[in-house]
Design a protein around this nucleic acid. Sequence first.
DNA 1: TCTATATATTTTAGGCTTGAAACATATTCA
DNA 2: TGAATATGTTTCAAGCCTAAAATATATAGA
Lengths: 169, 169
Amino acid sequence: MVASPKSVMAVEESDDRQPAQSPAQGKDRLRLWIRLLRVSRLIEAELRERLKAEFDTTLPRFDVMAALYRSPEGMLMSDLSRFLLVSNGNITGIVDRLVADGFVVRAQREGDRRTSIVSLTGAGSAAFAAMAAAHEGWVNAALAGVSQDEARQLAGFMKAFRSNWETGV
Amino acid sequence: MVASPKSVMAVEESDDRQPAQSPAQGKDRLRLWIRLLRVSRLIEAELRERLKAEFDTTLPRFDVMAALYRSPEGMLMSDLSRFLLVSNGNITGIVDRLVADGFVVRAQREGDRRTSIVSLTGAGSAAFAAMAAAHEGWVNAALAGVSQDEARQLAGFMKAFRSNWETGV
DNA sequence: TCTATATATTTTAGGCTTGAAACATATTCA
DNA sequence: TGAATATGTTTCAAGCCTAAAATATATAGA
């Protein structure tokens, strides 16, 4: 994580990078991926369980509401699917259920009858605010062993990785 | 990630840790979690897509086969579910489909008729070996921007986080 | 032995997820 | 205008996933 050459943190392209196929390095990267996935699953399971127990909701619903909370002007279905990295059809079902529960509305958009603007209702916004506060507490508890410095460094790494990914692909 | 006090890397308990509820630190941790999740989803989507395209299989099937490949003596259903961090009922369905495809068998275990020992068939083992090689390549490509040093450090961090989690909870 | 409890697994209901097909509407351009 | 193409969304089939209930078997204790 420390800034170093041949790093994803160094955004510029460097040609002296060792080939990804180098056996030892390959194993290190594979190990990293497996562990990253495990950590992410552990935390996700914890959050899912608490959302269910304390708010009787699910992680995907929370994610959709979080996205809408950030965008008071509303979002298109395709905005949601792009932002949350899930398929279009997936969003349809989650939004349907949120609408049925009165947390979300689809508003007609004049000029384009294919699309509708999805946004939180008052009830949805209030419900999300309560959940978000609890959620932040759970994440902090889950990451209690991570120092502030580490958290910042790792977050920087993840950000660099992602922008690297998105420009690279 | 650098070894530092108040770190998850320092396994011993330290009482001078800042409270997790400190506002700024809380935000850093939340940001870290959100980015970690995004990175993990990006990579997961990439691997899922390739497994589908090149081997017509899924990530959960790959995970089960990987676990069984590591355990030539076989595993119980509950071993699989514990190892893969998924529910019991989930494993039942995945193994059912792998059995139907001839990649896995359930062997009776004398002395306990509740359980059966699940293991790869020859075909399953061969199929997995091919997939594993490709999979390692994909992971290396996805993490091509991560240097060997970084990979090792981050993997160490993830390992420490996990063992911290498991003893802590 | 016989009952209570513990363990291992499957089943069930409900929701999430994908990719592909279907549908609806917009836009472009001949 | 009208046809072709592009865009936005929903539907569909199949599989994944969970928690809880049901089933089956094992073990311990009266």
